[in-house]
Amino acid sequence: MESLYVKKKRPSDAILSGLIYFSGILTTALLAGIIIYIAVNGIGSIDPTFLTTIKSVAKGTFGILGYMVNTLYIIVITLLIATPVGIGAAVYLTEYAKRGRLVSFIEFATETLSGIPSIIFGLFGMAFFGQTCHMGFSVLCGSLTLTLMILPIIIRTTQESLKTVPESYRLGALGMGAEKWRIIRTIVIPSSLQGIVTAVILAVGRIVGESAALLFTAGSSYLLPKSAAGIFPHIMESGGTLTIGLYLEMSEGNKANAFGIALVLIVLVLAINALTKLVTGRIAKKQGKQN
C-alpha cells in the first residue's frame, strides 16, 4: 500500500514541464543566435567607408550613407504627419467622443489598419500616392504610405496614456473655470507626454524595419541630396531605406554588404528598444510615486 505522504510523481508532468522550459529557452536561444550570427558576419564590413560614403561603381566601394539619410528623411516626414493626426484621433476618442457607434467604428478601423500587411500598404501607396497623386517613386510617397501604417500604433499608445491621466486633474481644472480645449492643452497632454514619446519611439522602430511598403513607393535609389539646396527637393526624389538596401544587396548576392547593413539595423533595433524601456521605466517610476 502506497503511503499518502509520499508525493506521487507523474512522468507526463516531467515531460510537459520539460517542454515548457525547452520552448522558453529555444525562443531566447533563437534571438541570441540571430544577434551573434549577424554580429560575427557583419562586423567585418563595418568601416568608415561603409558608414560615410555611398555606393560607387567607379571606385568599386560600397557605403550606406545614402540609405541612412533616406531612412532619416522618411522617419522625420512620416512622424511630422502621423504624430499630430494620431494624437488628435486619440484625444478625440478619449476626451470628446461619447461611447457609441462612431467610437466603436473608429476603433474597428484602427484595429483593421493595424492588421493590414505592409505589402498591401505598398500596393495602395503605389496606386494612390504614386499614380493618382503623381508622386511616383519618392520619399514623400513612401512617407505618406507609412503614415497610414503607423497611425494605429500612435493612436493606441497615446490613447492608453491619456486614459491614465487621473480624472481629478480634469475636474480640478474644470472647477477653476478652464474650458475643454485649455484642459487638454495644459493638463491632459502634458501629463501623458511620456506615453506620447513612447508611441513615437515605437513608430520609429516600425519605420526602420519596414521594407515591403517602401519598395514600390519610396523606390530604391541610394543617392544623397545633390547639394544643400537639394535638401527639400530630395523629398520628391526616389530614396531607398536601409532595409531596401539590404534587400537589393542580398538579391545581387553581395553577402558581406548585406550583413553589414543587417548589423546596423540590429544595432538600431536594440537602441530603439532600450530607449523605449528607459521611457516606460520612467513612467512606471513616476506613477509609483503618485500612488
Partner: peptide, 11 residues
C-alpha cells in the same frame, strides 16, 4: 521575445 518582434523582416 520583444526584440524578436523588432527584427526587420529582411533580416
Amino acid at each position: 521575445v520583444e526584440l524578436l518582434a523588432g527584427i526587420p523582416s529582411v533580416v
